[in-house]
């Protein structure tokens, strides 16, 4: 047991327990908080794996932006445990069983697999921003540009979808009422 493994286990327990929290808590807000915690644990794993840059980006993007959006939407809809739709026990049970079976199948399959790489504990420079930047802009320029176009179109799409359409059941508001 060295420091690396201690940290690994702490982070792993944190990640799995908070992930379970996501799916088990009845209140959506609690789910969001648990998911943020999961992301923090995963970011911790990234740091362990010498991917500091990715760790921070993970926090900024997931915890800082995506989850804020989730929180936003949940708050706007005022969802809480009282209005949370519940599935019947049977369906929940089936969900757990099938997820568990999938996990078991993969575990059983991987037990005999020939993937046996070893993660060296010494740090390397792969995860440094300079390295990533070079890889990104030398080998993956085209995917990068395409994904930026994708992102732009997603943004516009989200705006178009989310725009309040002039509906008939709401009285038209006059400009000076704003």
């Amino acid at each position: 047991m060295d420091l690396f493994e201690i940290l690994f286990w702490i982070l792993t327990i944190g990640a799995i327990s908070s992930a379970l929290g996501v799916i088990l808590s009845r209140n959506p807000i609690n789910s969001v908080i648990c998911l943020i915690a999961t992301f923090f644990a995963i970011s911790g794993h990234y740091v362990l794996l010498n991917a500091q840059f990715l760790a921070v980006v993970n926090i900024i993007v997931y915890a800082g932006a995506i989850m804020v959006l989730f929180l936003f939407v949940i708050m706007l809809m005022n969802l809480n445990a009282d209005v949370e739709p519940q599935k019947s026990r049977l369906v929940q049970f089936a969900g757990i069983i099938s997820g568990g079976i999938l996990f078991l199948v993969i575990l059983a399959a991987l037990r005999d697999s020939k993937i046996n790489g070893v993660l060296e504990k010494s740090s390397n420079s792969v995860g440094l921003i300079e390295n990533l930047g070079k890889t990104l802009f030398q080998n993956y320029v085209l995917p990068f540009e395409i994904s930026s176009v994708l992102f732009l179109s997603a943004m516009i799409g989200a705006m178009v979808i989310g725009k309040k359409e002039p509906s008939n059941d709401l009285p038209e508001r006059s400009p000076n009422q704003n």
Binding site: I16, A19, I23, Q86, G95, S98, G99, L102, F103, L107
Partner: peptide, 16 residues
């Protein structure tokens, strides 16, 4: 894989 399967379970169990 554990995290992945937890995600799948959640997707199956919840209706929200």
């Amino acid at each position: 894989f554990a995290l992945f399967c937890i995600g799948i379970m959640g997707a199956l169990m919840r209706r929200n």
